[in-house]
């Protein structure tokens, strides 16, 4: 399962969803879907978002194994 910290990174940037979407070349809805965890972005989009936020992809997106979830 993919978790993300996109909302925190966006808040740190001081932009709203529409502005971040414009910077990344996607719609506001897509940013919203990603932040809610309802959509996993493509590699291209994940790299683009990481570049905009000035961090690595792993700083935004965390892949959790099922075993990790069960232990939690």
């Amino acid at each position: 399962m993919l978790r993300n910290r996109l909302k925190e990174r966006r808040a740190a940037l001081g932009v709203n969803q529409q502005e971040l979407g414009r910077m990344a070349g996607v719609s506001r809805q897509t940013i919203s879907l990603i932040e809610r965890g309802d959509y996993s972005p493509s590699v291209t989009l994940a790299l683009t978002l990481a570049k905009i936020c000035g961090v690595t992809v792993e700083d935004i997106f965390i892949l959790e194994e099922e075993n990790d979830e069960k232990q939690q």
Binding site: G25, V26, S27, T30, Y39, P41
Partner: peptide
């Protein structure tokens, strides 16, 4: 004009 998530 739709992006990847909208097309999905």
């Amino acid at each position: 004009s739709c992006d990847e998530a909208e097309r999905a």
